[in-house]
Design a binder for these strands. Structure first.
Lengths: 113, 113
DNA sequence: CACCAATGCATAAGAAAACTATGTATTATT
DNA sequence: AATAATACATAGTTTTCTTATGCATTGGTG
């Protein structure tokens, strides 16, 4: 099962920020692969969604980019700015809270109860 | 704390459907109030989001509307169609699964551990 | 060696969905 | 009498993603 894209919309940036926090430094393609692996293919970020989000986060000063060359191939590594670390924490807290609220609202029971 | 609207985007229709399933029959304003009450104000559905969603669900044949008059004031009661009941179940299952995946991805611990 | 898949970036055009703002009208409260 | 709450609706704008496309390098396979 691949999740409908509506679900991912609101969480994409939070996912990106969380992975950057854990891994210090990642490039776009690496993010798509890690998300795919960690979710067993249930979340597949498209480039058309990912890159604009990265650019937006960079424009907001939440992440910073460093360009590197691997042979002749370019890579843009992103990492959290000081402000980004604060924002990341806030976002994750909000999302966790939101999910608790949704669980209550939808009366969802633990998977293996 | 009121959740950022991005988070709600992907879940709005699922919330509506869930409430209709539990309460058999509701009108728009009633839905906004119940969501507000159940979430202690954390989720406040705006009319500009709710009514278009209701109309869309109706157009898809997932919910059906009945207009009633309370005095001179009109109310549109909505309820799930047969297909709507199936869809509701699917949506809730998907959302529950998604939230599990997100919890894992974001490494979120239970609130009171 | 030729070809294809994978890696790696980027963006333009269009669609989807919600937000803001506004409009109309009735009923309850102060 | 005035205001808040109830109750619907939609037009215009913005945000965000999707689809599609483009370019280029690198690795693997027949």
């Amino acid at each position: 099962m691949i999740y409908s894209s509506e679900l991912i919309k609101g969480t994409l940036k939070t996912i990106i920020l969380k992975l950057l926090r854990e891994n210090k430094r990642m490039y776009g393609y690496e993010i798509t692969q890690m998300v795919k692996d960690m979710t067993k293919g249930k979340i597949q970020l498209t480039e058309g969604a990912l890159y604009p989000s990265l650019h937006a986060l960079e424009a907001e000063g939440i992440i910073v980019a460093e360009t590197e060359y691997i042979g002749k191939r370019v890579r843009k590594y992103y990492s959290l700015s000081a402000e980004g670390k604060v924002r990341t924490k806030e976002r994750i807290t909000e999302l966790a809270d939101f999910m608790e609220t949704m669980k209550f609202l939808l009366d969802i029971q633990p998977a293996k109860g």
